[in-house]
Amino acid sequence: MTALPAANSGKKLGLVIDLDTCVGCHACAVNCKQWNSGGHMAPLTDTAPYGADAAGVWFNRIHSFEAGEGAAGRTVHFPRSCLHCETPACVTVCPTGASYKRAEDGIVLVNEATCIGCKLCSWACPYGAREFDDDSGTMKKCTLCIDRIYNTNLAEVDRVPACVSTCPANARHFGDLGDPNSAVSRLVRERGGYDLMPELDYKPVNKYLPPRSRPALPPAKPLAPAAIDTASALLRWVDRALSR
């Protein structure tokens, strides 16, 4: 049903991505691909996988940007996946009801059994989070690992999205952003987590934590400024009593 759920649980499951520690390793992207290749939306088809123009369905892609110049310049690695928006037009534009937002946790999904592959939702998503599978003729996307996060066949600790559990730099956090007391909500508050393209008013659930400003070390005492010659410098050490 493409109308957004009127009464929702208040639960807003999503990701918080820390651009301050993301090293751009693509682990989350590939692990996502791997998990989901056999998961809820399987397969994540690859066309011409060994050919000249290989292309495939990915739910998560890692960009690299440079921002600013000179000493203020930075390189920032930037993972991009579905933000599970609160008011996502990708859902409301869908003519078939295949696209939907779950009332119970806010996860945005596609029902592949009814998707006609009109691609309109991918036009409606500002973030490029929808992935058309040419082979199946259906739209696919990040499921927030719905087949992991509630999976009773998995140990409790493993009930997080694949991208989160694999990130070597601990740059991805998962939780309920609807709960102001959740760890992710606290992180967003403490670190100034922000929305992508807030001007479009899709109200993304996923948040990004900005690169931190560089820690200023306590003004270290300047080292001896005086120019001293080698001989007198050495003299300082002659009388030092040290014990082995």
Binding site: D20, T21, C22, V23, G24, C25, S64, G73, R74, T75, V76, H77, P168, A169, N170, A171, P211, R212, R214, P215, L217
Partner: peptide
């Protein structure tokens, strides 16, 4: 990678000496 994230979470300073600013150097202080 895991170590760097721990280090940064503690507020330690990380200096990368490298002709190129990508990867680890990108997250260096």
């Amino acid at each position: 990678k895991t170590g760097l994230s721990k280090l940064k979470a503690r507020g330690a300073k990380f200096v990368s000496v490298n002709p190129v600013r990508t990867g680890y150097s990108a997250v260096a202080d």
